[in-house]
Amino acid sequence: MLAMLPVLVVHGGAGNVPRQRAELSCAGVREAARAGYALLRSGRSAMDAVVEAVTLLENNPAFNAGCGSVLNEHGGVEMDALVMDGRTLASGAVSAVRRIANPVQLARLVMEKTQHLCLTAEGASKFARAVGVPEVPEETLITDYARKRWQRNLQPGSNPVECQMGKMGTVGAVAVDSEGNVACATSTGGMLNKMEGRVGDTPCVGCGGYADNLLGAVSPTGHGEAIMKVTLSRLILFYMEQGKTAADASDQALAYMWERVQGLAGVVVVDPRGGWAARFNSLQMAWAAAQNGQLHYGLGKGEDFTLPLQDQPAAATQNLEQQHAASTHNLEQQHAASTHNLEQQ
């Protein structure tokens, strides 16, 4: 009999990941899934696990969240994050916050230490100071890659929206712990060259995430404005409420979003019994899932690679790395093929 619980699924953003960044993204989501799952196995809550997984992704410069965030039109970093606890529907969010290394942790503090759900911009910074969350210099959040992309998009004739698809790397996680509690967390630097003060779907409950012990949990990534218009996370859970599986509900909601507002996105979803899904209508989405001693991961359509997750002795790790290399090769070939496809279209 399979142990369905606990389970954790993470994503590292939907879009069209440039080839040289594909392996970084895949390694990052695998690492985050492992760390979150280890917490769940040691008896910690779903909320602890999703915050841990997203913290690692924020700290990883390969993703558009925390360090590695994209820059807004003025070259600044403004980040959004959300957490939600399926036990009580308690939720916390920050929007357009600056100079914070881990917005997801600040969002959790909003949930736990205030009577509010969302704090924005300067008010969020003020709260961070009040609860002793340190401010970091903005420079420490900015990578050369982010700055290069920002400069490229300042040039006349550039097309930020198209370039956007290269890295819509919002990150997120959903989990069910051994007690059957669900939680979600999402964090992002937003859209490349966005207007100052732009808030996307991420910190909006029901759009950038939702968790309810009775139904499941969702964390999305993709074109924020489209996700908001259809309140994507809530929509998926409505479909699950009607008896659909996580995968079917996700596919139906993504198809609906495409039909209504022509949006591209991806989602990771869990139900309280441990069923999970990682689905997307964009070209790619880096994702990883940990359940029953197995790590699943993928990037392109239809991919589902697996690795064992049991306590890993040195030899096994080496083995893993070889498999890594092999699957990377695979990914790159598939990526080349799908890019080719896209060009033909």
């Binding site: 403004e78 929007s95 357009a96 924005t120 911009a121 300067e122 008010g123 929206v161 859209m191 966005k194 207007m195 100052e196 003060g197 732009r198 808030v199 996307g200 909006c204 924020g224 404005e225 908001m228 218009k229």
Partner: peptide, 15 residues
Amino acid sequence: KTDHVMLTDRGANLF
């Protein structure tokens, strides 16, 4: 007038 759905704080005032 924008490609966005939501603007916050100072950014909304700049807009």
